[in-house]
Amino acid sequence: MPAEPGPPGISCAGLAKRFPAAGGGLEVVAPFTREFAAGATTALVGPSGCGKSTLLRMIAGLETPSAGSVAIGDETPAEVRARAGLAVSFQDPSLLPWRTVRGNVALALTLARRRAAAGTIDRLLALVGLEGFAGTRPGALSGGMRQRAAIARCLVTEPELLLLDEPFGAVDELTRRQLAHDLPRLWEARGTTTLFVTHSVTEAVLIADRVLVLSPRPARVVADIPVTLDRPRPEGVELTVAFAELAERVSAALARGAAEGGQTGLAAQ
C-alpha cells in the first residue's frame, strides 16, 4: 500500500477471531476482508453480540486476530498506537473515577505524550455538551455524560483514526442528535478516518458515508451500503425520502442477516 500524506486508510485481510472453548471454540468474527477509505466514516451495524466490537478491537490491535491481518496505511495497529495515531471510545466509558472530567480528557494527552493548545479541552467539553462539568468526577455524572466525556477524551489527541464502539449508547435522544450533527463536522474537518459500531440504523445512516451490515455471530458482511446523502447533512435529513430508503435498505439487510443466521452471510450486493 503506497504511503501517502494525510490520514491512512484501513485494510483488513481475512481478519477472523475464534475464542478457544470446548467443542472447537466459539467463532466470533468470520474472515473479514474490506478496505476503508482514508477520511471516510463507516458504520458497522449488527445485532447485539454479533462480534462487531471484537472486529473494532482487532482493528485497534487490542485483540489478537486468530487469522488475517490489519494494515493502517502501511503500518500495523501497534505501530499506529505507539505514536498515538488512533483513539478508541469503548462501550464502557472507562473514565478513571479519581480524575475529574478535565483530568480524564487530559489523561489521553499524557498517555500520548502530547500537549494541547490552551482552551482545547474546554472547547471539546463544550462540543460534547459538558461545559460546566470540567471539575466534576465521573461518579457524579449520568451514564450519557460519562460517554460524552469519553468521546472528548478520544478527540483531544486529534487522532488520524477514530474507533468508536457504540459511542452514543447511553446518551439521551436529544443530545444524541446534537452529537450526530456536530461530531462528524469536527472529524471531517480534520480528515479523520472513522469507524463506529452501532445497532441504531438511523444513527448509522445519519453519520456514516458507508454502512456495513453484519450478520449475527459469527459476524459476516451482509451488505455494504454507500450513503449517498449530502455532507454535511442538512437539517431535517431524517425526514427525506432518500434517508428513509437508505434506512430501509439497512434494516432489510439486518433482517436478512438475522433470517439466514450467521452461516451463509451474503457478500456485498
Binding site: 478491537r57 485497534a60 487490542l62 501497534a78 499506529v80 498506537r81 505507539a82 505514536r83 498515538a84 488512533l86 483513539a87 478508541v88 469503548f90 464502557d92 472507562s94 478513571l96 489523561l107 489521553a108 498517555l111 500520548a112 477524551r153 489527541t157
Partner: peptide, 17 residues
C-alpha cells in the same frame, strides 16, 4: 477493570504507564 487498561493500550503505552 480491564477496560481501563484498554484505554492505556489504545495510546500504545505499556505496563509502566
Amino acid at each position: 477493570p480491564a477496560a481501563w487498561f484498554d484505554v492505556v493500550a489504545s495510546y500504545g503505552r505499556g505496563r509502566w504507564a
